[in-house]
């Protein structure tokens, strides 16, 4: 099971990194969204996989009995999902505003901060 999941995680990484290497900002964003999923699944897989038994203590008992899924990676991922969503939303709005201000979605043409062919800085004292 872990093997199959590992292969799938690899595919998530490949696609997300491929998208991030693009020049179109929207593709980069899609890549980042998928990258979040890839990382979450990595944590999930590294914590080992268990079918269908959630880590919930049954009524009337004070601790888990039997084998259940690992709760720790789940707790880590839960907050990570929300954080990466906020981050994605922020990047999306940033891209959106950049497109409005600069009129392009090509990262090569976004050169306000680092203009092309900028001359030497002042050489005086």
């Amino acid at each position: 099971m872990e093997t199959a999941l590992t292969a799938l995680v690899g595919l998530f990484y490949v696609v997300s990194i491929y998208l991030m290497l693009s020049r179109h900002i929207i593709r980069v964003l899609l890549g980042i969204a998928i990258f979040g999923n890839a990382v979450n699944m990595t944590i999930f897989t590294a914590g080992r996989i268990m079918r269908e038994v959630p880590p919930i203590i049954p009524e009337g008992q004070s601790a888990l009995d039997g084998v259940t899924a690992n709760p720790l990676p789940q707790a880590l991922i839960l907050t990570a999902i929300v954080i990466s969503f906020s981050f994605f939303a922020f990047l999306l709005v940033l891209a959106y505003r950049a497109y409005q201000e600069l009129g392009t979605d090509d990262t090569d043409e976004m050169r306000i901060a680092e203009p092309e062919g900028e001359g030497l800085p002042p050489l005086g004292y």
Partner: peptide, 17 residues
């Protein structure tokens, strides 16, 4: 590049498991 990274992550993860 994406393939090298992605497969690398997968292999690393496999090793971890």
């Amino acid at each position: 590049i994406a393939g090298a990274c992605g497969i690398g992550f997968a292999v690393l993860l496999l090793k971890v498991t």
